[in-house]
Design a protein around this nucleic acid. Sequence first.
DNA 1: ACCAAAAGTCATCAATTGTTGACGTGGGCG
DNA 2: CGCCCACGTCAACAATTGATGACTTTTGGT
Lengths: 209, 209
Amino acid sequence: MGAIHGTAKSVTSPLDDRPRVRNAAVTREAILAAAWRRFLNESYDNVGLRDVAGDAGVDVALVSRYFGGKEGLFRAVLSHGKEEKFDGLTDAGALAARLAAMATEQAPDEDGHNMERLLIILRSASSPVASSIVRSAFSADVLEPLAALIGGEGAQQRASMAMAVMMGTAIMRSIMAVETVCEGACRHDVARRIERLVKVALEEDKPSY
Amino acid sequence: MGAIHGTAKSVTSPLDDRPRVRNAAVTREAILAAAWRRFLNESYDNVGLRDVAGDAGVDVALVSRYFGGKEGLFRAVLSHGKEEKFDGLTDAGALAARLAAMATEQAPDEDGHNMERLLIILRSASSPVASSIVRSAFSADVLEPLAALIGGEGAQQRASMAMAVMMGTAIMRSIMAVETVCEGACRHDVARRIERLVKVALEEDKPSY
DNA sequence: ACCAAAAGTCATCAATTGTTGACGTGGGCG
DNA sequence: CGCCCACGTCAACAATTGATGACTTTTGGT
């Protein structure tokens, strides 16, 4: 039966049945927002254009028309509002704390966007058509900036290690549904542990051993 | 066009065109082996029963007939030959070294089986029908045994963290195709770093800090 | 107010997918 | 040797998927 798509039930807030004003930019954004939410919760293959269109309250044809097909839509989602916020963090410790905070926050606040994008990347990493897009986006938008930020020997490798920790925790929490992060108090413990992990991953050289 | 399946090109060694002897057990095993290889390289949705049947050199109908459908086949693959080999490792350091070795070995030698199963789990973790199977298998066959092996406070959480490191490195290497592990010499460095990461993840309590 | 172009809708297509039933056929046991 | 049931094959089906071309409706400028 092929890929089973998500429930047709709208994930968005109760979409207005009022006839949408004809504005290409607004419609495009609506589609993009709906696609973002879909790709965040399901893999590339399991996101149907009809689901996205339904959430956005538009016809299926518009999706292909505006984004040139499913692949274009996915590409647009990954390219949507990408700004790295690790600007001023030159200190390795502060950077680690920042990453740990990103990994443990569950309410998709402001910065949740970056983590959400990481999750989107993760979800569709094993879909043949999406994998190439995902890999290049991950390398260009995440890995290389991080490697450039931290300097030193083997920056690329250390950055990869840190992202491995991030990816791993993300998988555990959001995909494997393992409740590593319990409520309240112990959550802080987990955050500290992740922080230590990231720090070790970023360490320039094996110091004491 | 739905999920694009892998190339019809056989992944197996040149399959014998000699008329297969009629033996249910042998055929079942052939299908299982072919399915293992397919699920190892593609996600649940992107593995077609026709691909598996083609690799095994049998008809498509036999797959559904023997395993009761695609879902049953996937379940059978995950349940195939699962033996944990962390038996005698009571020392946290030795365990970490073992896990790091598992994560860095690229030739699927003897123990590669365990890592391969982890990769199969990882690949299909985002497929609605496979996710439930994958999660329970991961919890029952990987997480809980590891948590039981290491003792102490919050064993479940520490085990999850260690597996997060394992999953993360696996993703980086096999899915994201990030070349964290270079040839020869530096590979050992990576192994040591992973070993340290696993050790930190398994640490019972924040010692100095 | 008109009219061209943009924005949106509808219907339909080709391609795959997993699954099932009816139909051959070969091999082991009496 | 002969039969019969398990083993295997073939063909077809229903369901979805992404995509596209023709058609309708609205918008905005003059």
